[in-house]
Design a protein around this nucleic acid. Structure first.
Lengths: 141, 141
DNA sequence: TCATTGTTTTAAAATCATTCTAAACTATTG
DNA sequence: CAATAGTTTAGAATGATTTTAAAACAATGA
């Protein structure tokens, strides 16, 4: 728990619990992703961040890792913009503000938006997830 | 109005009203898009459809046209899947079911989902649009 | 500890959707 | 009908992501 003493133990546990082998790359990325509050990252961002943390990881590994983390439920992929994927470290039920101009995402707590009953899904299907994206732009003064 | 007599008059009017020059390509695509009920198309789909309707249009023009139509409000771009853009001919306020396995979109009328008040947008911004995507998958029997 | 085995990482190439470029074409206006 | 401004196009370019095949590594058990 005390990250000054065992800096990778949290990351290590996260990977272990997810059934992922704790490699140097995954440990480092997990630490960046889950070390400090909720985050929204793109592959390129994380790659840059890894570089400045002196963590040598190829871009291919960044993509592999983000996808694996999403598969095991450690991340949630948020689709807001054609041609770019965002990954959210907050995997609990919640929604998003999306700033069109700055391409920045911001969480909205699940209970901050009341959603009534959803119409019956098409026959043979069941609801997997409900995504609400509130697209905001600079207020015109 | 009678499309058996003046097959392009509706498309022509749509383009005229939108301030777009009615070229052969735009007329043909408008007819495919707006000819018959609400539709959700990707660029590739529309390209294939144009081809089988004997409408010769390059893929670049498909993209240009879909983007122009969106800019003038004739189409609404729906972002549901990384790496692929969908365009919806229904531009009124409404939401979507998205079938993860088949990558198919389906409209949900705006009044079929009751949404409570949205939290105040971050300061300096105003809400541009609210997208609700209900992701469904095959029900596991 | 060490060898074996199955995973993971990687650089580089490949892919895919989309956009750009510059030249050829076409609708509109005078 | 000529001039011009807007459109279309093939093909090249881009950018994000995935694949490939080989080298590096982690886990396991002797």
């Amino acid at each position: 728990m005390d990250s000054t003493v065992r800096p990778y133990s949290k990351a290590y546990d996260i990977l272990r619990n997810a059934g992922l082998r704790p490699t140097r790359q995954r440990l480092g990325l997990a630490r960046l992703l889950f070390g400090d509050g909720d985050r929204h990252v793109t592959a390129e961002q994380l790659h840059a961040e890894a570089a400045s943390a002196n963590l040598r990881v190829s871009l291919a590994t960044i993509y592999n890792t983000l996808n694996q983390f999403s598969e095991v439920g450690l991340l949630r992929e948020v689709v807001v913009k054609p041609g770019r994927s965002y990954f959210d470290t907050n995997t609990s039920d919640h929604h998003h503000f999306f700033h069109e101009e700055t391409a920045r995402l911001q969480d909205i707590a699940a209970d901050a938006i009341a959603v009534g009953p959803i119409p019956t899904p098409p026959s043979g299907t069941c609801v997997e997830r409900i995504d609400i994206i509130v697209r905001v732009k600079k207020a015109d003064k």
